[in-house]
Amino acid sequence: MPELSLTVNEHRYEVEAPIEMSLAHVLREVVGLTGTKIACNEGHCGACTVQVDGMPTLSCITLAHTVSGEITTIEGLRDHPLIDAFVRADAVQCGFCTPGQVVSAAALVAANPSPTIDDIRHTMAGNICRCGTYPRIEEAILHWRD
């Protein structure tokens, strides 16, 4: 099986995976990092969002073998202030979309530490929450440094 080398959360992984396997699948089933979620599996919902070189990327429609950049998953953001902010704002209901939400939000605040509501709505538009916790997610991001 084709070999590939991935850098995930600053760790190097040498693994084997078929060419057609998605990054999400490799992260979850081969590397063993199950924080990244697969929901729609067709690039619509954002649950599978990871950062590649800091850019929010849909891992469910990214072929693992095409990734050469550094990957950051929710496991790599364990100590990010956004985690506490999401808890303070009670921005989690079922929680399935939350890893993707936090990964996107971390890229947003890295580029723009004081985002407005409009910035948040534009930049977080690719992360769907079917519980509808959007107002609390916005609140968590607005006050992420408090």
Binding site: G43, H44, G46, T49, M55, P56, T57, L58, T62, S104, H122, T123, M124, A125, G126
Partner: peptide, 12 residues
């Protein structure tokens, strides 16, 4: 470009 798709898709 700004109104197309989602932020992740625009990145990719």
């Amino acid at each position: 470009c700004r109104l197309a798709a989602s932020p992740q898709l625009r990145n990719m």
